[in-house]
């Protein structure tokens, strides 16, 4: 996309608002739907990857230290990772905290 969505005028759109750039959905920030975000106590983490398997958004990846962590650009804050974590690594906190 040449411009960010918020700057596109009606004249910038392709006919029928057809999207000509494959994979452009990756630019869509679903993270701003979030009201809670996950926080981590990695000392308890056994790197079992259960959070990654359960994440409905597919946004949990291993960080530089190989701990599993959500990409907040996409994380919608559903809390499923916190619920499923066997060793209670993840705590959901309100976004304003």
């Amino acid at each position: 996309m040449t411009k960010p969505e918020g700057e596109l005028t009606w004249k910038d759109l392709e006919i029928g608002a057809i999207v000509t750039e494959p994979g452009s959905a990756a630019q869509y920030k679903t993270g701003d739907w979030r009201s809670q975000r996950p926080t981590y106590d990695f000392a308890k983490c056994i790197k079992c990857a259960l959070c990654q398997i359960f994440c409905p958004e597919g946004c949990i990846h291993q960080n530089a230290d190989e701990y599993f962590e959500a990409d907040l650009f996409y994380c919608k804050g559903c809390g499923i990772c916190a619920k499923e974590c066997l060793t209670k690594v993840i705590t959901m906190v309100e976004e304003e905290e």
Binding site: E5, I18, V19
Partner: peptide, 10 residues
């Protein structure tokens, strides 16, 4: 992609 979803901004 045809008939894609459009958020309120577009």
């Amino acid at each position: 992609t045809m008939g894609d979803f459009a958020p309120p901004i577009i």
